[in-house]
């Protein structure tokens, strides 16, 4: 029958850098379903991912680890649970120029509650230096209140090292 599929899930709001982050560490550009934005997210960016992003990395003995990005627009959220099922862990990206980054982080933590309880999560704060509406410390404080001491790293989704550190931290959590 089927081998178990190993996958890491990237999630976060529209324009947080999910497609970019997957592209930064994967072996091929993400196969996406990016389309021109037609609704309210047009104000934020020209292209958005409908359905999902997909790419992969290959381990030395040939196993593929699949990288999936959820569509950012919340009208696609019915797909999140389906996508996450059986995943290794969750990478939540929050763009620092979002009007309410703390609420966004909580929204994704709550949405993936069961999945996170079984696995683990890391938070990447992207798009620094444009309109920094939050500090790493504020996200950390909220995580502390929730007693979910997950990593929060400032990352540039375009930098492969930044995205790798996030995933490395996720792996460290899952290994202990």
């Amino acid at each position: 029958m089927f081998n178990q599929v190993e996958k890491i899930i990237f999630t976060g709001p529209v324009g947080a850098g999910k497609t970019t982050a997957i592209g930064s560490i994967s072996e091929e550009p993400p196969v996406g379903t990016d389309v021109a934005c037609t609704d309210e997210s047009r104000l934020i960016k020209d292209k958005t991912t409908v359905a999902m992003d997909y790419s992969y990395i290959t381990l030395e003995e040939g196993t593929r680890v699949h990288l999936y990005g959820t569509p950012g627009q919340q009208r696609f959220d019915f797909m999140w649970k389906i996508l996450a099922k059986g995943g290794i862990g969750l990478v939540i990206l929050i763009n620092r120029d979002h009007p309410d980054p703390v609420a966004q982080m909580e929204f994704y933590l709550n949405s993936f509650d069961d999945f996170i309880a079984e696995t683990g999560a890391v938070i990447g704060l992207t798009r620094s230096g444009m309109q920094d509406n939050v500090d790493v410390g504020e996200l950390q404080a909220r995580l502390f209140e929730r007693q979910q001491i997950f990593p929060v790293f400032e990352v540039d989704a375009r930098s492969s090292d930044d995205v790798k550190i996030l995933v490395q931290a996720l792996l460290a959590i899952l290994s202990c």
């Binding site: 190993e6 560490i25 990395i57 290959t58 381990l59 030395e60 003995e61 196993t63 680890v65 290794i88 492969s160 090292d161 790798k164 550190i165 995933v167 490395q168 792996l171 460290a172 899952l174 290994s175």
Partner: peptide, 16 residues
């Protein structure tokens, strides 16, 4: 499982 996680970590080693 630990083996898999460490292989992924190795694959995603930092460049620096």
């Amino acid at each position: 499982r630990l083996g898999l996680l460490s292989k992924i970590a190795k694959r995603l080693a930092l460049s620096g």
